[in-house]
Design a protein around this nucleic acid. Sequence first.
DNA 1: CCTTGAGTTGCATATGTTGCAACTTATGCG
DNA 2: CGCATAAGTTGCAACATATGCAACTCAAGG
Lengths: 248, 248
Amino acid sequence: MSSNQSVDRALTVLWILNGLQQATVTEIAEELGVHKSTASRLLAVLEQHRLVVRQPGSMAYELGHGVLQLASTVRSQNDLTRSAQLLVEMVAEHFQLTANVAIRDEIFAVNIAQSAPSKRFFTPRQYVGRRTPGHATSSGKVLLAFADRTVQDQVLSAKLETFTEHTITDPVCLAEEFALTKERGWAVSNNEWDADMTAVAVPLLGLSGTVIAAVSVTGFTHDLPPDTFKTRAEELETLVQRHGRLLE
Amino acid sequence: MSSNQSVDRALTVLWILNGLQQATVTEIAEELGVHKSTASRLLAVLEQHRLVVRQPGSMAYELGHGVLQLASTVRSQNDLTRSAQLLVEMVAEHFQLTANVAIRDEIFAVNIAQSAPSKRFFTPRQYVGRRTPGHATSSGKVLLAFADRTVQDQVLSAKLETFTEHTITDPVCLAEEFALTKERGWAVSNNEWDADMTAVAVPLLGLSGTVIAAVSVTGFTHDLPPDTFKTRAEELETLVQRHGRLLE
DNA sequence: CCTTGAGTTGCATATGTTGCAACTTATGCG
DNA sequence: CGCATAAGTTGCAACATATGCAACTCAAGG
C-alpha cells in the first residue's frame, strides 16, 4: 500500500478538526505525535489552500471555506445528489421527520442528502457524507439487501459491531433480515444503531431498475412505534415513486 | 512563508479535481509537473482519506464523499450558516431569483448559503465557498462598504481586476460607491462581474448591530432592470428583517 | 499475438521534511 | 501595567522520506 507520510498527516489534521471542531497547533501536534513546529507547518499549507482557517483573534484552527467549495463541486457534479435533495425535502415535510437519501459505499451507507422537518426543534444531527454502519441502519439494510451476493458475504463474514443492545450481530439473523427486506421491499432499524432512534427505509430505483440508493425517515423511537412501520414504508414508497426514478 | 511540497501538491490535486471534475493519474501528473508515480502515490493517500474516489470501472479520479463529510461539519458548526440557509430559501422563493448570503473574507466575499428558485430551469451556477471579488459583486460592495477603514484602504490600493466593461476599476469611483452603499443601505452589481448578470444586496445585522453578512438576489440582467433596483432592495430588506437578526 | 498506453511497485538517490533550539508573539496573573 | 509563562514561528543541520527512474502488470485494440 502506497503511502506518503506528510500528506497523510496533513489529511489526518482535517479529520482531527472534523472531530474536535477547533484545535490549537499544540493539540494537533500531540494528536499526530509530531513536533509542534511540524504541525504548524502542515497547518500553514492547509491554510494557504483555505481548507483550515483561524478566526481573527483566535489561535485555534478550524475547517475553512475551501472545504465548502470543494463540497459544492461534489454536489453539483452529481445529478443524483441534486435530485435527492429535492426528494428528502418533500419527504421531511410530509412526515415531519428527518429524511435521508443514502448510497452504498463498500459495506457502509453514506448519506448524500438530508433534510430536517421545518416545524421541529429537536432533530437528529447532520450525517451527510458520513459512513453509517450497513447492518444497523435502515438504509444500510436496504442497500445491502439489494446488493450483490459478494458484498453481502463481505458483511456477513465481518465482525459486526455492537452499538446498542438491539444491534443485530449474528450473521444468520442478519442474512434473514436481508431476505425479509428484499421480499417486502423495506427495512427498519429499531434502536439498533442509536438507542431511542428508529428509522424506516425503502429502495430508490434507477432508470435500469436496479437499486441505486435508499430513502429513509428517522425519528425518536417514541414517534415511530412498530405498528406504524408498514404504513410509513408504504407512504414513503408512494412519495418516492411519485418523485420519479432518478438518473443513474 | 512555510511550505511543505508534498502536502501542497496533494492539496493542489483537490483543486485540480475541483476544476476538471474528473482526471486520470497522468493528467494530474502533468498538471502538477511531477512524475506519474508521484501523482499515483499522492492520489492513493487522498483516496485512503476518502477525499477522492475512483468510480468502479473508471480509471479517472474525482472528489469523494469525505469532502462532503468535512463540509457538513463546517456547516453545522456555524449557526449563521444554518440560519442563512433558511433565509436564502425563503428569499429565492419570494423573488424567483437565486439568493445568496455572503460573509467577508479579507477583501473578498464568500457565499455561505445559496438557493435557486424552484420554478426556473436556468440559474447561475453554484458558488458556495468560493471567493468572489469584493469590488464587482453586490454582496462584496455591501460587506466592504460597512467594513473597517483599513479593509477599504486595502481594496482601494490594490489593483482592481477588470471582469467586464462595467467593472469599477477606478479607486475614486469605488470609494464613492462604498459611500453611496453605506448611505442608502444597499448595493447593486450591474454586469460588473459577469456580463448579463445583475444582483442587488443588503446588509445582514448581527445582535450587536454590526454588519456580519450580505444577502443578495442575482438574476440575468434582463430580469433585473435598473428601475427595479430600489424596490427589490427594499423588499429584500423587509424579508431579512422579518427573518430576524441572526446569531453573531 | 503482439503492440501500445496507462497505472503501480522496488529501489537508490538527494531532496525535502523534521526536530531541535532560539526567537517572537500572545496570554495570564499579581 | 508589566512581568512571567505559555504558545507559535523560523533558521539550520541531519537524516528520514518522497521522488524519479525503470521494470513490471494489466487492459484494450489492431
